[in-house]
């Protein structure tokens, strides 16, 4: 029982971190950014390259990953999303293509064999009979810190309020002196940085491989659909529902069924409450 609670908390924290950047773009940029997984994958690889291949300090590897993720988000807004403005299908298709291209680029640069990422913080601690690596503990703490910081930023700063404003009424934001373009660009950069940070922890939780971007995108889509648009708290809660669901299914039923109940949950929510558990009805 204690095992399940601890493992559930840890996995949920990781999922919340991964889903946060995806939710931001979905809520503010109104884009289902299927290439979000590319930030996660590239984040993992940049960290691997800087800290394991070049032997730089881990913190430099982590910072480099976040910076590259943010830059990718920014470029994607400039080069793809903005020119295609007003055509969500075209944006979604091109972001998906971009993810596949990034996958090939990673194969070219690093080969297609999976790699083991050395943990950010090595070591294991036993809590109430459960084996907990410092690495996933760090991921969980980090995701809580990032989520709280994000919440404070969105609620308490002019830029954060402007992000909410652009998501709710672009014209209203523009006549308040907010440049919606600039705010969208900032949002894409933050999302990319969050994705890359999540990617470093996700890669060290599983392993680094050029196809590792798929699973986190599915998890993110699930969390955002079930949680609903525009709610940081909703994202946090649903990340925990899904994290605990997976851990419980694996422990009680069978590991093969891990993702199945998540899918059932998505379909159930789509039928019963299309705006998500914590989302608001959009008009």
């Amino acid at each position: 029982m204690m095992q399940i609670i601890i493992q559930g908390m840890l996995l949920s924290g990781l999922y919340a971190l991964i889903a946060m950047g995806f939710m931001l773009i979905f809520s503010i940029g109104r884009t289902l950014n299927l290439a979000y997984g590319a930030y996660i994958m590239v984040g993992g690889y940049i960290y691997f390259w800087l800290s394991q291949q070049l032997g730089m300090p881990k913190i430099v590897g982590f910072g480099g990953a976040v910076a590259v993720g943010a830059l990718m988000g920014l470029l994607k807004h400039r080069l793809i999303v903005k020119p295609l403005k007003g055509d969500p299908v075209a944006v979604e298709i091109s972001t998906l293509i971009l993810a596949v291209i990034m996958q090939s680029a990673m194969v070219l640069a690093f080969g297609d064999a999976s790699k083991i990422l050395l943990p950010l913080i090595p070591g294991v601690v036993t809590v109430a009979g459960a084996q907990v690596t410092y690495n996933i503990l760090a991921a969980t703490i980090m995701s809580w810190v990032i989520i709280l910081a994000l919440y404070a930023f969105v609620r308490g700063t002019h830029t954060g309020r402007a992000m909410q404003a652009v998501s709710m009424d672009e014209k209203g934001a523009a006549i308040s002196g907010v440049d919606p373009d600039r705010i969208n660009m900032i949002t894409w950069a933050i999302s990319g940085g969050l994705g890359a940070a999540g990617g470093v922890f996700f890669a060290s939780y599983t392993q680094l491989s050029p196809s590792m971007w798929v699973a986190p995108v599915i998890i993110s889509v699930a969390i955002v659909i079930v949680g609903g648009i525009g709610s940081i708290i909703g994202t946090l809660i649903v990340a925990h529902i899904i994290g605990f669901l997976e851990i419980t299914v694996v422990a009680v039923l069978a590991p093969e069924l891990r993702g199945v109940f998540t899918m059932v949950l998505i379909i159930g929510v789509l039928i019963m409450r299309p705006q998500g558990l914590f989302g608001r009805e959009e008009h």
Binding site: R161, M168, D169, K171, G172, A173, G230
Partner: peptide, 8 residues
Amino acid sequence: RFNLFPHM
């Protein structure tokens, strides 16, 4: 049409 931010 005001163009307010309805959920703020």
